[in-house]
Design a protein around this nucleic acid. Sequence first.
DNA 1: GTCTATAATTAGATAGAC
DNA 2: GTCTATCTAATTATAGAC
Lengths: 195, 195
Amino acid sequence: MNQRTQQRERTRERIVEAAAGCFAERGFRAASTREIAARAGTNQGLITYHFKSKGELWRAAADFLFARIRAVIEERGPLLVALDERERAREAIRIFVRFAAAHPEFFRFMLEAGKHDDERLQWLVENQLRPVYESIPGMARFAASRRAHAQYSLVGAASMIFAVAPEVQRLTGLDPSKPEAVEAHADFVAELFVR
Amino acid sequence: MNQRTQQRERTRERIVEAAAGCFAERGFRAASTREIAARAGTNQGLITYHFKSKGELWRAAADFLFARIRAVIEERGPLLVALDERERAREAIRIFVRFAAAHPEFFRFMLEAGKHDDERLQWLVENQLRPVYESIPGMARFAASRRAHAQYSLVGAASMIFAVAPEVQRLTGLDPSKPEAVEAHADFVAELFVR
DNA sequence: GTCTATAATTAGATAGAC
DNA sequence: GTCTATCTAATTATAGAC
């Protein structure tokens, strides 16, 4: 790879990461390409050059966010096989909670996308979400008829406190991003779903 | 109350309800006063006349949404005292889940507001959320040090599946708004938190 | 009280300089 | 590949007719 191609990739990466943050914080419509460009340390025209449209940038941002959760699954999944069934389910849930704490933008992005039945949601479900849906941890314990209820209860219980962290801080005084709070939440949710 | 005052109140109510829906669906910034006006069957200029600014309309919308949850608490709360402690906690959670199913816009509105630490969140916490926070059901069972974790786990588990209903439908085929799905989710979450 | 017209900003996409 | 300038369309808030 020559220097120009490397520079190109680094610039694209900076823009995509800034876009993921902006789309998560503001939603697709309210996120502006000018703000994304500024956050990436560049200009608005360059976004059109690299991504053609705001919609394509959004898809690149989704791919960026899902690459991180896939990495966690691939990295931590194999380590769980040594544990017995119940402790494996608990530890998988703790890993999931820690991911939610480390990447609240992932869940903010998903919460924004999941509430509108448009072409973006369709693309997201088919290309990103469906492939990882089956790997949500600890769900084999529940009957198929309750699977969706268990999945979304777990995702909600694990991620909500981090998705609205500023509200939690103002309302309760607890800062959910602190390591002690993350571990307390991981233990609480793991114990809630696997007793 | 004379006719003109009645007409005024009905118009304001229509605008506020439309605003609550738009702010929940799109967030504060992306919701446009023109779309709100169109949904309320009127025009954009009238919004400025009645509410002065978009920010004040947002506060009126928040007040409208919280009035509904307060009404449920006041209406259904007294009926629970006849039950024993555990069944009271379970039934309170079921009522909360049914509210989340009937009013996903409440939770979409809150999820959008809760992720930005701005003057709107400050107003929302102090004027609307704090007064009802203590009435979230079934939480007396948990130690004070775990209260926030329990509260947000419950809110997340109860509401997420309805907040992202279009995603759930596309991904799993389940329509969470159907009465059978609502009851199944209510039972699942109640059983999850009170065994 | 309701509506139309408009002013001042800001948006995404495009064109072209370098 | 990067950046500035600009076009068209949309935004909120305002002014004023009725």
